[in-house]
Simulated assay, not measured.
Amino acid sequence: MKLQGVLPALVTPFDASNNINFDAMADIIEHQLKAGVSGFVGMGTTGENYALSDDERLQVLGFLRETVGDRGTLIAGANGGCTSEVIDRIKAVRDTGYTNILVAPPYYALPSQEELINHYEQILEAVQDINVVLYNYPVRTNVEVGYDVLETFKDHERVIGIKESSGDLLRGIRIGTDYKDNYQLSCGSDDQAFDFFIWGATSWICGPANCFPDQICEFYRRFTAGDRDGAQAIMQSLFPVIAQMEEGKFIQKVKYGCELAGFNPGGCRAPLLPLTDDEKRRFRAAFEAING
């Protein structure tokens, strides 16, 4: 499986009763496909996977697969607090039709690197008809997918890539050079995307693509066509709004961006609170500077 292009980390829209709004989700998906995305990651961080029940997660993933069909690569997030829970969720996701799974370290347990290696080994042994994309996001999990883990699985045929969301560009550079023949590198640090592609990333798993798919897909097209100056200019225009997202309330700002783009994503589930009027004002100004 090739990790290529722009893969939006899909939001989960909610209606006024806080139920999943599948009509809004379909609108957002179709808009992004029209812009040129390569596929989607469902039930990742931006999709508020932690706030949905197991049944809701499978409903979202089933709807995503049905809506996209063969028009893009699909990856499902399947995380949890312990190894057995993650394995059960991966089996359920696989039975929904997914073969590509994004797996971060278990939250709260704080496994050592040895324990994290064992965690992934158990997953690969228990579910043998899936591809695993490692997910390094220590800000969320407080555990690094360290180089011991990368060394252990560098020749495993079903550990196909890593989404690097640490914010540490040096890690991205090292993975893109030392492990270029072992892992497909996907950018997960949106404000560093241009640098990631310079150092060997082939894809961008991207929350902001929910509300800026045209610009982000154009960035990818220009970069892969060899127009680095053009790609850099697009990233320079996007940087102020992406930097705002990275300051905090990321998911709320992605959803507000979808609203400003004409969609109906609703709010976020608790504990996340809505943006304040001042936060909306600042974000809207950055959004309109890009979209006019």
Rank of each mutant, 00 (worst) to 15 (best):
E151T: 06
G188D: 08
L170F: 02
V37L: 10
I162P: 04
N136A: 02
G262M: 03
I290T: 00
G266E: 12
A109D: 06
E115S: 15
S38I: 05
M43F: 08
Y137R: 04
D229K: 07
K249G: 01
V139T: 07
D129N: 13
A26R: 15
P265Y: 05
V41Q: 10
A109W: 00
Y107E: 09
F22D: 13
R65E: 14
V132G: 13
F197V: 01
N131E: 15
E30V: 12
E279P: 05
V241H: 01
G172W: 00
G266C: 10
M25H: 06
V139I: 10
G172T: 04
F239N: 00
V149S: 02
S186Q: 11
L33P: 10
R174A: 10
G267H: 10
H156S: 06
Y98Q: 12
F219M: 05
S237H: 03
E56V: 08
M1G: 04
H31W: 15
S17T: 14
G97Q: 11
A233K: 11
G167H: 07
N21V: 10
I20G: 12
Q232A: 13
A285K: 09
F22E: 12
H31S: 14
L52D: 06
A24T: 07
D54V: 04
L102V: 07
F250C: 01
D15R: 06
F223G: 03
I242G: 00
F196C: 00
K34L: 15
Q184T: 00
R171N: 08
P138V: 03
A76W: 12
F263Q: 07
K280A: 04
Y135A: 01
Q184H: 07
V60L: 13
N21K: 11
E246Y: 13
S165V: 04
V86F: 05
E164I: 01
I251M: 08
G161K: 02
G42Y: 15
F263S: 02
I234T: 09
S112A: 07
L124D: 07
R71G: 04
F197Q: 01
V41W: 15
E125A: 15
K249N: 11
F212G: 02
I101R: 02
R284G: 01
L64V: 14
V241A: 12
A51M: 08
Q59E: 14
R94Q: 15
R269N: 06
D178L: 14
G172N: 04
R140C: 05
A289L: 03
G97S: 08
G81T: 11
P213F: 13
A24I: 14
V132M: 10
T73Y: 11
D88E: 15
A261E: 01
A78T: 14
V37H: 07
Q128L: 07
R222S: 10
R284F: 01
N136F: 13
D214A: 13
G39F: 10
A286Y: 03
S166R: 01
C82Y: 05
G292Q: 08
Y98I: 09
T73C: 02
G161A: 01
S17D: 15
I28S: 06
M235Y: 09
P106A: 09
C268N: 10
T202K: 09
Y179C: 08
G262P: 06
W199S: 02
K154R: 14
A289G: 12
L134R: 01
A289W: 05
P240A: 05
G292T: 05
C211W: 07
I290R: 00
M245C: 08
Y179I: 03
T96G: 00
L58Y: 07
H156N: 12
A231T: 04
G161L: 06
F223P: 06
I242E: 00
V11C: 13
